[in-house]
Structures are given as C-alpha cells and as structure tokens.
Design a protein around this nucleic acid. Structure first.
Lengths: 244, 244
DNA sequence: GCCGATTTGTCCGTATGTATC
DNA sequence: CGATACATACGGACAAATCGG
C-alpha cells in the first residue's frame, strides 16, 4: 500500500512499463502530460521518474523526453538493487520457497567473530544457520548473526518462517539499509553436503555478505549467504554520474 | 568539476565524511544548519543528502537527524555502485593498472552472438579481448562487443589505452546507464592460460556481464568481464523502500 | 543558421504532515 | 505540549538541450 503520492505514481508507471504499455525504446508521456494524468505537481512526477531511472527502467533525455529501456529478464534473478528477504524474492519469482533451520544457538562474539562480522567483541548474538530451498532444490545456505539486544526473543520457530517478518511486524523495527559484498569462495564440507554439490563439478560458490542497519543506526545483522553457483544471479543497474 | 550546486554540496559533504570530520554514528548538522552553511534552499541540501544515502554514507532519521554510517573499506574493491572504467578504479584504489590487447577484430553478429549479447542479428561489431593487470598480476579478462555504428573509428591502439576515455572525450558520447549481472561460471582454457589459474585450486570465476546505454538510448556495448575469484569483490549498498 | 515551442534540469520559497525528544 | 527535524507536496522561475519550421 503506497503511502505517498509519488510512490503510487512510481508503482503505476512501473506496472505499465512491465506490461508493455509503452513500446521498448519509445518515449513515455512527457512530464507535463503526466502531471495532468496524475493531477500533481511536477516535482512529484519527477520523483517517481527518478526512481524508475534508478531501477534501470527508463532514461530521461534533456530536450527529448523519457525513454523506456525496460526489458523483461527471462531467468529468475535472486537479488535486485533492493533489500528483500528470501520469502519476498521467492514470491516475486513465483516460486515456492521453503526453509530448514540447521542450527540455532546463542553465543558471545569472540575476537575472531568480532573481526569477521564487525560486531564488538563480547556482544551477545543469535546464530542461525539455515538452508533455503526453491522448488525443493537446496540453493542457499545462510549464516545469520543477530545482535540479541536489538532482536530480542528470537526463537528457532520464528527462524523457520521469516525472520524479517518478525523484525518488521512484531518488533516494529525499521530496516534502513544494507551494505553488501559479493565474492567467490571455495566450498566447504558443509556447503558440499547441504547444497548437494560435487567438487569435481564446482569447487567454489558465490557469497554475499551483508551488514544490515536499523533506524537506530545499529548494525543488528551480519549475514553470509552462500549460493549454489549454477543458480546464482545478482543484478544491478548503475547510473553514470557527472562528477566523480 | 561539479556543475551544479547540489553536486558541489554532495562532494563537499562526502569528503568531510571520508576525512572523519563527523564521528561515526554521530549526527551531521541538521538540514536547517546546512542551508545556512551552503546558502541554498532546503531542496538543494536534501538532494545532496539523498545521494549520500544512496552511497551508504548516511542515514536520514525523521525527527532525529542525519547519521554518519560511513566506514572506510580496507580492501581494494573493484566495483562500487557506479560505472567506472578499469583505469578509473585502478586510480581510485591507488594501484598501477595496465592493459594488454589479446584480440581486436571486426565481426558481424550471427544468431549465437545476437542472442547472447542482445545486439540485433547482422549488427556490425568490434570485438576486443583484453587482459587487465593490477600491480603486474593478471586479474581480469574482458570480452567487449561495441556497436560499430555508435563507436566509429575504434582501433587496436585506442583499445590499449582507455576506450571509455575515447568514447567520452573524443567521440563526446554520453554514457547513461549500465545493466549488470554477476554470476559464477566454470573457467575456460583461455581463463586458465591468461589469468594463471590452476583448476585444482579454483575451477570457476566471477563474471560480470554488462549492457551499456548511451544518451541515444542505444545499447552500444556488451561486455563480459571474467575476474580471478581470489581478487574479485563487488560492493553495493541497498536501501529498503517502504512499498514493494 | 536562427527562432520559437517543447522537454528535461536546477533552484527557490512555502505549506503541511509526521516522528522524536 | 511545544520545539526540532525530516518527509511530502505544491507552484513558480530560469537554464539548457532538442527539434521543426
């Protein structure tokens, strides 16, 4: 449910583009026309458009107009430029996802964990190890570390569903941003076992590490996601800025 | 050289944050104070701030203020959320990069190339295969396809330097955006040979494929970048949006 | 080549809503 | 409750790029 005007305009235009209302490479209605269509100010239209630019859906061309450059992606892509839980991206890709909790424990960050995760030494943490299936195929092993003080009351049962759902709807936590890094690493015995990989086939996998912040500015989560290489896909749209 | 007010404010604040002018986790001056500092309107300040949010440098918190969440990255990261040429990122990471052209040829897109790159069948292309070194170590093999009609006069000599430099400064082309996908693929014999990889060590590598558009809305470049897995690093900052 | 109409880019000032303290 | 801070929205002004006559 979009709470603001520019969001609903953004959403509406996005859907129209996805449904092919505007031909590829053609111009959308001009800002002036959109103002009349949506009965709003120019700033509001421009704000919706700038979000679509960030998504790689359109280009705005001075003196010309707004061009549709959206092309549907055939494959199911795991991650796009926004923060999504596994459950959300499963739904977006119209697949049936399920989750199995391999480990659930509480621990205190020692020096090794602290330096790897960025949590301070001595911090009380939940550690959750989960296996995510898509269409009954194991695709991802997640190693989550949650700061206990920021995520109180986490249980194994919650972890079997959606932890993000718990954070946002039960704890009313606001997730703000997430710093992510993609690397390639050698597979471990755990990867090999649960992701059903064969070393002769692939001896490495894709790893996304992310540090997630809430509105209190605390990093409350550190996660390492280890992905089957043959199903891994990470998408991005980069916009060239004038001055660096 | 920032041409607009909000860009110079953005740049100034960014530098101050990087230089540690504001302590980590502390609040920056409020928008009202920034208006007076930079003698501008509130919109202009907010525009600069929103760019810093996208960079993962700050959080804006309603009712509270603007919090600095910038942390310097220790490792040399190859790519951030913007479009950079190899030359640019080498400079940013303060390393000495060099480039060797392995192949330079003109070709016409057959059905296979067309379906892989997204160029129309029959399109006239330049194909460039290059090896990029950082500190004398071969790190990346690039397979570039350029649309001949959009990039006329490309030569092997230009390819030995910076092609992007040629595009922007000589052809005065404006690069707008680039759609990128990160995947993991098996190594080929070419990878093994030029990147000096051992199959027993790593049998796959990180691949970034990108489709780059200019201001005429034409995709003029398709590139596949194959990265040594042990030196590959792709960074990103994702911002949680209210409505999906 | 010039001129005017159209379109996007930048910037300003103001008003109102909402969250925090 | 009031003061402060960010979020949304409106309207207006001028600049710069594009295009057709």
């Amino acid at each position: 449910m979009p709470r603001s005007k520019y969001e609903s305009i953004y959403k509406d235009l996005k859907e129209k583009i996805e449904e092919g209302e505007y031909p590829y490479q053609e111009l959308l209605p001009s800002e002036h026309q959109l103002i009349q269509t949506y009965d709003c100010s120019r700033n509001t239209v421009r704000r919706a458009l700038s979000n679509l630019v960030a998504d790689g859906y359109i280009q705005t061309l001075p003196g010309k107009g707004v061009r549709n450059i959206y092309q549907a992606v055939e494959q199911a892509s795991y991650t796009l430029g926004s923060i999504e839980s596994f459950r959300e991206s499963s739904l977006r890709n119209r697949r049936s996802g399920s989750t199995r909790v391999l480990q659930f424990m509480e621990l205190t960050a020692d020096r090794k964990i602290a330096s790897r995760t960025g949590f301070p030494e001595g911090a009380e943490l939940y550690y959750v190890q989960r296996l995510h299936y898509l269409d009954l195929k194991p695709l991802i092993i997640n190693h989550n570390y949650f700061l206990k003080s920021a995520v109180p009351g986490l249980t194994r049962e919650i972890a079997e569903g959606s932890i993000y759902n718990y954070l946002e709807n039960t704890l009313h936590m606001t997730i703000v941003n997430s710093k992510r890094t993609v690397t390639v690493e050698k597979i471990t015995q755990i990867d090999e076992k649960y992701l059903e990989l064969n070393v002769d086939d692939y001896n490495c996998l894709a790893v996304i590490t992310s540090q997630t912040y809430n509105s209190d500015g605390v990093m409350f989560e550190y996660t390492q996601s280890r992905h089957r290489p043959d199903y891994f896909r990470f998408q991005d749209n980069a916009v060239r800025r004038k001055s660096s």
